[in-house]
Amino acid sequence: MTDYTLETEDDRLEALRRMLTIREFDTKAGHYFADGEIPGFVHLYIGEEAVGVGTCAALDPDDYIASTHRGHGHCIAKGLDPDLMMAELFGKADGYCNGKGGSMHIADIDSGMLGANGIVGAGPPLATGAALSISHQDRDQVALAFLGDGATAQGQVHEAINQASTWDLPAIFLIENNQYGEATPVEKQHNVDQLSDTAQAYDIPGVTVDGMDITAVYEAVQEGRKRAANGDGPTLIEAETYRYHGHYEGDEQNYRTDEELQQWKDRDAIDAFKARLIDRDELSEAEFEEMQAEVEETIADAIEFAHDAELPHPQEAYDDMFSDTVPEIEKFANRARTDGGDSR
């Protein structure tokens, strides 16, 4: 639940804490992936924290987000529990998806999190659909889709924004332009320089904000939310940001220079936000150290929780396909129950 804004001192400290939590979560996720304890792939959000947190701070707790393959940050910003997230990354039964989803599919519809998504560009149609439900039932919510610069080239993204615009749905489309679609720079994937320019194709406002400045993101999403909730339709927001790690953990990153990475790190969103809070006398170095220590403890606890959690029973592979059981799957499930699946 996103029960924080940037309007009060306490909320600003909470936002900073979330940014630190994301960085610590993903730092540790990277370590445990490298150690082989986390299977599959992980896509780390480190460097982009201001976008997720600035966005979720501007949303209401009940609002929906549709996330991307790089979704850990969105989850934490939205208020999901790091214990259950980490357990999911470790493939444990106590994870958000009982171990069936992993890093790329963490979801918690009750918290408004419509799922990380392994398909680039698949989130926006889902957000349009959620906005359709909201509009149809006249609920006081909005739906926001995070998408990357890469996804912005996808046909289904265009279809989703066009439909939401045509129907004036309460949706927001937030492009996290981290400068690379996988290993290919954004200039090689788009003819427009500013991805927000595509908003003109839908007759909706499009703005580009500094994704390393949490307040810039916050304000833009706040305005987008206002428009959406007023029935004025969607807004396209581009946040310019940068991922400090590779597209996936272990990616060689031969497509960019150390110098470029350093230039972005010099504008680090957490450092900048922290400096502003210190400047405003809302935070001291000592308090920051304390916050960092607490965050480290939170994530250490999450790792312990994930370590200690049980692996799913193999039999659970047969569950959750449908709302009911179908004989086709039951047949296999029964065989597995009786002979461990050997006769399948």
């Binding site: 149609p125 889902l126 659909g129 359709l132 439900s133 289904q156 279809e159 989703a160 129907w167």
Partner: peptide, 25 residues
């Protein structure tokens, strides 16, 4: 009863998103 754009990925996707959030498309 809604007319959609000629955009099957978009409106089928919207149906999926709507189904996950409380309606029955």
């Amino acid at each position: 009863v809604r007319d959609t754009p000629i955009a099957e990925a978009g409106y089928v996707g919207a149906a999926v998103g709507a189904a996950a959030t409380g309606t029955r498309p």
